[in-house]
Design a protein around this nucleic acid. Structure first.
Lengths: 219, 219
DNA sequence: GAAAACTTACTGACAAGCCGGTAACCTTTT
DNA sequence: AAAAGGTTACCGGCTTGTCAGTAAGTTTTC
């Protein structure tokens, strides 16, 4: 018989305390990056020592991972959407997210910095982001598939590229917005670009970049 | 009279040596980030000590800045384009850049990581990126303006958003591509998204996200 | 229901390692 | 010989993580 683990429960306040730490970590990782932001920085913000934080989370990497999943939960809470939206609703959902992100600079910054950091070798969050993008792209393709099915047309091969493109715009705009908030409107610009890309899938236009050569198409 | 800078010239090989260091730094900053990548890492790659690198560049921050401007020069060299392309050529140029970037993962990674890092407080490269995006957006707007003038139409107000969006897609796709190169085609996907956004400016479509409500528009 | 037995939630001190930068000194060009 | 290119040696600082110890809380036992 395996030694029965008679784990005594944690104290009632401890859940709130952990959340407090996660919020502080989001803040610090957002404003300094996960490499530059230190455990001591985070500890100071919640009024304890860095050792106390290690007590709760075991290691810095573990804390980082929990920060990321915490964001996901907070996302769902924020938009109060219980089920994953499908079809055209999926893209509307992305637009709403972009608009609501404009009021959560801290979270956005943490996410933007961490996602780019993650491409470096052996980064703790690499798997997380790899997975996240794969999933989101897949969801975008499914959304396109559903929309096309409703209209009785085959899903264009451009759906996958469009999915990747839409996620890319959203992320890229976050960086520009963080660098220059007064000159970039996060929500509106995301909306414009997403609409452009969705349009390109649903009603393809001839490429504006190819030489017309035959000047018949003028005006 | 201000003290004439009697800069004694450097040896002939030293220029090549500097370039070697810059290449190594790009490599290291790309694979480990500018915070995690150390002077010693870079020094090892060119076969000297970290103090030798400081001799050439003075400080790590200075090296970082030179890495960024080195990329810009290398960009121009690479595509062998002497003058800044205008009008529709500007967007074609961006597409070509995206395709050529697919063969320069090191540079792309360095750039992607650094641009996101730069949004953190007091980052050495923050001004550089702020400026870079502002300039590029401006160039995009000018390109749109020229294209519209050629067609005898007024430049739509969407031009600015489109410019930001195009830059955003390019950067965002780089991150996805670096995370999962087998599933993302950097050049083709960038091209698709850029065409979509340019189309949306030059020949606006009704938003695909608004409820049709009146079902007259079906197929 | 109160004392005993045990956990949790920390603190403070410290170890070990790495990093950027400086200073002093050698060596090769010019 | 004067200066550039580079090395060695080293310092001060900062970071993560470990560890022993303590106060406060929880559970068990009688």
């Amino acid at each position: 018989m395996a030694t029965a683990k008679k784990q005594t429960r944690s104290r009632p306040e401890t859940i709130a305390r952990r959340r407090e730490i996660l919020r502080a970590a989001t803040d610090i990782f957002g404003s300094k990056g996960s490499v530059n932001g230190t455990l001591t920085d985070i500890a100071e913000q919640v009024g304890m020592t860095h050792a106390g934080i290690l007590h709760h989370f075991g290691s810095k990497d573990q804390l980082l991972m929990e920060v990321l999943t915490y964001r996901d939960e907070s996302d769902v809470d924020h938009l109060e959407e219980k089920h994953i939206p499908t079809g055209i609703e999926f893209f509307r959902h992305l637009v709403r997210t972009a608009f609501s992100n404009a009021h959560r600079a801290g979270l956005v910054q943490a996410y933007a910095v961490l996602s780019a950091e993650s491409v470096t070798d052996d980064h703790a969050a690499r798997d997380y982001f790899e997975d996240r993008y794969r999933t989101l792209r897949q969801e975008a393709v499914e959304a396109f598939t559903q929309i096309c099915a409703e209209r009785g047309v085959a899903t264009p091969e451009t759906a996958y590229r469009a999915g990747a493109g839409i996620l890319a715009v959203m992320d890229g705009l976050q960086v520009q917005w963080l660098l220059d908030p007064t000159n970039i409107e996060l929500g509106e610009t995301s909306e414009f670009a997403i609409e452009a890309i969705v349009s390109a899938v649903l009603s393809p236009q001839p490429s504006p970049l190819r030489e017309p050569a035959l000047d018949a198409v003028a005006d």
